[in-house]
Amino acid sequence: MYIVEKQSQKLLTLPAKEVKGKSLSVFGSELANRILKFLPEGPAYPKEIAQKLNVHEQKVYYHIKNFERNGLVRVARTENRQGAVAKYYELTEPAFVVRFSDLRETTKISATNENAQKFLDPFVKDGKLNCTIIIGSPQSHGPERARSNDGYYAIDIALFLGSYLSYYSPEPVVKLDTELRNGDLKQNIISLGGPIVNKITERMNAKMPVRFDYKTKNIISKVSGKTYNADETGLVVKMPNPYSKGHWIIIVAGKRYSGTRAATIALTKHTEELAKGNKKDKKVFAKVVEGLDLNSDGIVDEIEFLE
Rank of each mutant, 00 (worst) to 15 (best):
I250Y: 01
T227N: 10
K207D: 11
A230F: 04
A206R: 15
D213Y: 12
Y243S: 07
L235N: 04
L185N: 01
V237Y: 05
D213F: 13
E232C: 09
V252M: 09
A230C: 04
A206I: 12
Q187W: 06
G194E: 03
Y243F: 15
D231C: 02
P242W: 03
A230R: 12
L235P: 08
T233S: 11
G194T: 04
R203D: 07
N241E: 05
I220W: 13
H247G: 04
A206G: 06
S191G: 09
N188F: 11
P209L: 14
A206W: 15
R211Y: 15
K207G: 08
N241K: 12
K186D: 01
L192V: 13
N218V: 10
M208I: 12
V210Y: 10
G234L: 13
V210I: 15
Y243M: 13
S191N: 08
I189P: 06
D184F: 01
D184H: 04
T227R: 15
V210S: 06
G234Q: 13
Q187A: 14
I190M: 07
Y214C: 02
N182R: 02
G225L: 04
L185R: 06
Y228N: 02
N205K: 02
I249A: 11
A206N: 15
K186H: 08
I200T: 01
S224A: 05
I190Q: 09
N229C: 01
P209A: 14
L235S: 06
G225T: 02
L192D: 10
M208G: 12
H247M: 12
I251Y: 02
I189A: 05
N198F: 08
G194N: 14
D213Q: 11
I189G: 06
K217S: 14
I251H: 04
K238C: 08
Q187S: 14
D231P: 13
Y214A: 13
I251A: 05
K186C: 07
I250W: 00
V237F: 05
V197P: 07
K215G: 06
L192H: 03
I219R: 10
K217R: 15
K222E: 06
G246K: 12
D184S: 00
T227C: 04
L192P: 10
G183P: 05
D184V: 00
V236Q: 09
